[in-house]
Computed example of a mutant assay.
Amino acid sequence: MKIVNIKGQIELLSGLHIGGGDDTMKIGGIDNGVIKDINTDKPYIPGSSLKGKMRSLLEWHIGVVGIGDGNPFSSKLLNDSIFNDDAKKNYAQNLLKLFGDKECAFGITRISVGDCSLSQETVDKELKLSEAKYENVIDRQTGTASNPRQTERVPAGVKFDFDIRVKVLDDDNGDELVSMVKQGLDLVANDYLGGSGSRGYGRVKFHIED
Rank of each mutant, 00 (worst) to 15 (best):
V158F: 05
N90A: 15
D86N: 13
L185G: 09
I35G: 04
D101P: 09
I82R: 14
L57T: 07
G19D: 11
I3P: 05
N173V: 04
G174Q: 03
L58F: 01
S146T: 14
K159T: 14
K159D: 00
T144E: 13
K102D: 12
D37N: 15
G68D: 07
I3A: 13
K97T: 01
R110L: 03
S81K: 15
D31L: 07
G100V: 02
I27Y: 11
E176C: 07
G114V: 00
D85I: 07
R149T: 00
R153F: 13
F162S: 06
K7Y: 10
C116S: 14
L12H: 04
G15S: 10
D186H: 12
V113K: 08
N84W: 05
S130R: 12
C116W: 04
R149K: 14
I35N: 04
K102Y: 12
D22Q: 13
D23A: 13
R203T: 00
G107M: 07
G100F: 09
V64Q: 10
T151R: 15
V158M: 06
M1C: 02
S117W: 10
L13Q: 13
I67K: 10
K36S: 00
Q120C: 05
V166D: 06
D210W: 00
A145E: 05
Q93N: 12
S56A: 13
D186E: 14
Q150L: 15
Q9E: 15
G195S: 15
L78S: 09
L78K: 10
T109K: 15
S112W: 06
F73L: 15
Y91S: 08
S117F: 14
V154P: 02
R110E: 07
Q141S: 12
L12V: 02
L129S: 09
K36C: 11
Q93M: 15
F83C: 10
D124R: 12
P43Y: 06
S14Y: 07
A132I: 08
K182A: 07
G197Q: 11
A156S: 15
P46A: 01
Q150D: 03
Y201W: 04
T40Y: 09
N94Y: 07
